[in-house]
Structure formats: C-alpha cells, structure tokens
C-alpha cells in the first residue's frame, strides 16, 4: 500500500484515496478539433513504463484532488505538490 502525499493532510495510506486515472492530454476546443484529434483526446490514456502523472482523490480525508507523478515500475512518487512536510 502506497503512501500518498496530500498537500493538506500529509502522507496518507493509499486506502484513503480513490484513483482518478492518469492525466491525459488537455481537452481540445471541441469546435476546433478534428474528429481524429477529438478521438485521440478521449481514448489515448498515458501508460508509460516510468513516471506518469495521475490524480488521486482524498475521498476519506480532506476531499481534495491531488496530482502526483508516480513511477509505474517502482511506485516511487517522484513529484508531488508542496504541502506540510
């Protein structure tokens, strides 16, 4: 079970969080994007072997969404928002 750093609550057990998936591309302007661009935005989910940016919801804590970088090989949290140390 990972320890996820919440900028408001500090390091907390993964069981307090709900996984919100990797952070994909920014949402394109739906009125300007081509069909292919729109489909790519919807369906291509980052799945790297290495650091991935992803979101976790501290549902059983402060209720805030946290965005971190996690290395998929090691579960090391390589980048996290600032917060109480």
């Amino acid at each position: 079970m990972m320890l996820i750093p919440c900028p408001f609550c500090g390091k907390r057990n993964e069981s307090e969080f709900i996984f919100g998936g990797p952070v994909g591309a920014d949402r394109p302007d739906p009125n300007a994007a081509s069909d292919a661009e729109w489909v790519e935005y919807l369906t291509v989910v980052p799945n790297p072997l290495g650091p991935v940016q992803e979101r976790w919801w501290h549902a059983r804590g402060c209720g805030e969404w946290v965005t971190i970088w996690r290395d998929t090989r090691t579960h090391d949290i390589v980048r996290a928002p600032d917060g109480p140390k």
């Binding site: 709900i18 919100g20 952070v23 949402r27 979101r55 919801w57 549902a59 209720g63 805030e64 969404w65 965005t67």
Partner: peptide, 11 residues
C-alpha cells in the same frame, strides 16, 4: 460528487 469535484479542482 467525484466527477464534479474533479472537474472543479483539475479543469
């Protein structure tokens, strides 16, 4: 609830 909060906090 999760959907709304995620939109507001991340988008």
């Amino acid at each position: 609830n999760q959907h709304m909060k995620k939109l507001l906090q991340t988008e």
